[in-house]
């Protein structure tokens, strides 16, 4: 090459136009994973409104929101956990254990205010156990949280056995499902939105959020950039446990029943919703808006099928299928794109 290569015509500020492959902002927005989830959501809402009797009513949308409230709450920290390349499968068991502890403490006679606070502390501790096993012991979170999933659920049975505690005061149970005045929308929707904004800002607009993507894409480079990788992961697992317990308190009041088997298997719905929302199971990619879309999409499909009298076994098949599709589809698309790229003649 000629020696004048050291003084290039274009510096960083004077960026040369890209000759080919240049796309408009609109095209780029449409190409994101989030937008395809939102698109799928709109299509399924439209289809359900037209095909399923009773779907498009205010009453039903209230039920739909209550139905997905726990999934939506837990999905928020789960998104951050999966973006860093980890996973927390113990969330549903944390919810169940919280519910069991809540019932037992109520039987003992503690006031519900105190119980709620204790439950959140419990969730933080359960999350910390996961986090410490992942960070200090250096174990893969998949293995750790499968273990604690069984362990926490087992503990729940030890504490409450097969019984249900169902004599919570109506002021609390009714309050949990109360609607915002004059609307069919339950107040929990408000809490979900507030938390979604908090987690969304945290993920997309803070230094902490940036470090999560760096860790998820390449945790070695993150470490070399001075990011405290292990501490960050520990914080996320604690957040995940705490929010799972919050969902547990809500779940118990919503159904007016503390049981050890509450929310059994819910972790799969949460993970399905997050992945459906365009978050990569391999870490480093995803947006919170997409996850909200994923949660709503999952909720819409389940709600519509329930209204159409489809059995619960069928629902579980649908959830599982969505989970697999959400993992397989982005990879397949990526592979097709890569093949198209290599097929292009070298410029």
């Amino acid at each position: 090459m000629a020696p004048d290569v050291t003084t290039p015509p274009a510096g960083g500020t004077a960026l040369p136009p890209r000759p080919a492959g240049q796309r408009s902002v609109l095209q780029r927005v449409l190409a994101t994973r989030e937008s395809s989830v939102i698109g799928a959501l709109l299509v399924s809402i439209l289809a359900a409104s037209l095909l399923v009797d009773g779907f498009a009513s205010g009453r039903n949308s209230g039920f739909l929101i209550l139905d997905i409230a726990a999934i939506a709450l837990i999905a928020l920290p789960m998104t951050l956990v999966i973006v860093t390349g980890e996973i927390d499968l113990s969330v549903a068991s944390t919810l169940g254990l919280t519910s069991a502890v809540m019932g037992q403490l109520w039987v003992i006679g503690l006031p519900l205010e105190t119980i709620a606070v204790l439950c959140l502390v419990l969730g933080a501790l359960l999350g910390a156990v996961n986090g410490l096993l992942v960070t200090v012991a250096g174990l893969p979170s998949l293995a750790v949280t499968i273990g604690t999933m069984a362990m926490y659920r087992g503990l729940a049975y030890v504490i409450l056995g097969d019984q249900a505690v169902a004599d919570f005061p109506f002021s609390w149970t009714g309050g949990a499902t109360a609607r915002l005045s004059g609307t069919p929308i339950p107040w929990i929707a408000l809490l979900i939105i507030v938390l979604a904004v908090v987690f969304g800002l945290l993920l997309h607009a803070t230094p902490f959020g940036r470090s999560l993507y760096a860790i998820g894409s390449n945790d070695e480079a993150a470490r070399f950039s001075g990011i405290p990788v292990l501490r960050t992961k520990l914080v996320l697992f604690i957040a995940s446990g705490t929010v799972a317990s919050l969902a547990g308190v809500f779940w118990t009041l919503q159904y007016g029943s503390a049981r050890a088997d509450n929310a059994f298997g819910l972790e799969l719905s949460v993970v399905a919703a997050v992945l459906l929302g365009g978050v990569s199971i391999f870490g480093g990619k995803g947006a919170l808006l997409g996850v909200l879309g994923g949660v709503l999409l999952l909720g819409t499909i389940r709600n519509a099928l329930q209204l159409a009298d489809v059995s619960s076994d069928m629902l579980s098949i649908v959830t599982g299928t969505l989970l697999v599709v959400s993992v397989v589809l982005p990879n397949a698309i990526e592979r097709v794109r890569a093949r198209r790229r290599t097929a292009e003649p070298p410029s």
Binding site: A205, T206, P207, G209, R210, A214, N218, A221, F224, G284
Partner: peptide, 30 residues
Amino acid sequence: RQQGLVMEMSIERNATLTRRSALSRFGLLS
């Protein structure tokens, strides 16, 4: 490739990864 950069992240995010906190205002990065 393995230690210096997060390859799939953008050029600007890589270049500012070490200064995340310094560039943020009131805790938010623009």
